[in-house]
Simulated scan of single mutants.
Amino acid sequence: MTTSGTTAVPAPDILRYTAFSSDPSGGNPAGVVLDARALDDEAMLAVAAEVGYSESAFLTERDEAARRFRIRYFSPLAEVDFCGHATVATAVALAERLGEGPLLFLTNAGEITLDTARGADGAVRATLTSVPTRTRPATDAELDQSLAALRWSRVDLDPSLPPHVAFGGVEHLVLAAATRERLRALDYDFDGLAEVMRRHGWTTLQLVWRESAERFHARDPFPIGGVVEDAATGAAAAAFGGYLRDLDALPASGAFTIRQGEDMGRPSTLTVASVPGTGRTRP
């Protein structure tokens, strides 16, 4: 018989959802723990590492009557202040249990509002509204360090979409490839890019190619989270919407789509709209 001065914490119920795709073989999977009130940081990190997805979400405080929840996100290696696809996954999981309607998530990055509704096919869908976005031009040092780790050069970039650091809850370096072939041939220095990202506080790189004003293709390296690439990145999509707005490059409708995950075999579609007068976007 063994004794201990502490009480064992029951293993949490871990749900697995896929966001930004109607096909389970596409989109970006996320772990969801709807009741993480008994878990400390170390335990949440261990769960995220065990699940192995790019991020898992944990509800650490809950007010079901007000539909208000404190949410935290962990990659297999570290906590992340905000994660779009895990937010959407958690909102769908809650709506399936509590009923559709608005939700409010308190994140490290600020308040995120969500609308959930059931479609004609019976599936629950969730749309988030980001925190206010912002963007600034990347410095020459930031750009040169990133291009070296990516094994790209400046001639690989689209001059009409300049390199920026964009924020939509967390920061992302936005680099636009001049060709679809450049974006497709992604072969980067994993450790080198992770070090660059840690140095500058970036969560992913948002690598894009513009097919048209309304349609982009994207890839998002995520080495600081222990993941080569994200299949669908809602936080980066929100930031990219703000980037296009600030560059006056949004289509007349204010909305566009991003195709992501195609080159890694998990095709995803993210629709992004700018919310007029708020500085926010809805991926």
Rank of each mutant, 00 (worst) to 15 (best):
T139E: 04
F69W: 06
V228S: 07
S54G: 14
V33P: 02
A178N: 13
E262M: 09
P163L: 09
V88L: 15
D41Q: 13
G225F: 10
V51G: 00
V155Q: 14
E229W: 05
I14K: 02
R16K: 11
L106I: 06
A93K: 13
G279Q: 04
P24S: 11
Y17T: 06
T113W: 01
A138S: 14
D41L: 01
D13W: 04
H85T: 07
R134T: 14
R259H: 05
L250S: 03
P221I: 04
Q206F: 13
T18D: 04
T278G: 09
R184M: 07
L175I: 08
V227M: 13
D263A: 13
G279M: 11
F58G: 02
S274F: 10
A109V: 11
E50G: 05
L77V: 09
L143V: 07
P102V: 05
R215E: 14
A138W: 00
A178F: 06
T2H: 15
P251E: 09
E42K: 04
A138D: 04
R37L: 04
Y243L: 06
R134L: 10
T129K: 07
R125Q: 14
G52W: 10
T203N: 11
L175N: 00
D144R: 14
D35Q: 04
Q206G: 02
G5C: 00
E61S: 10
L15Q: 12
L173E: 00
A95P: 07
T7C: 06
G101L: 10
A48N: 00
D220T: 07
A65M: 03
L94T: 05
D246T: 05
A8D: 10
E229G: 05
L161K: 03
T278S: 15
S22D: 15
A126W: 01
L34D: 11
I224T: 08
D115W: 02
A235N: 15
D121A: 10
A166H: 09
V275I: 15
T203E: 13
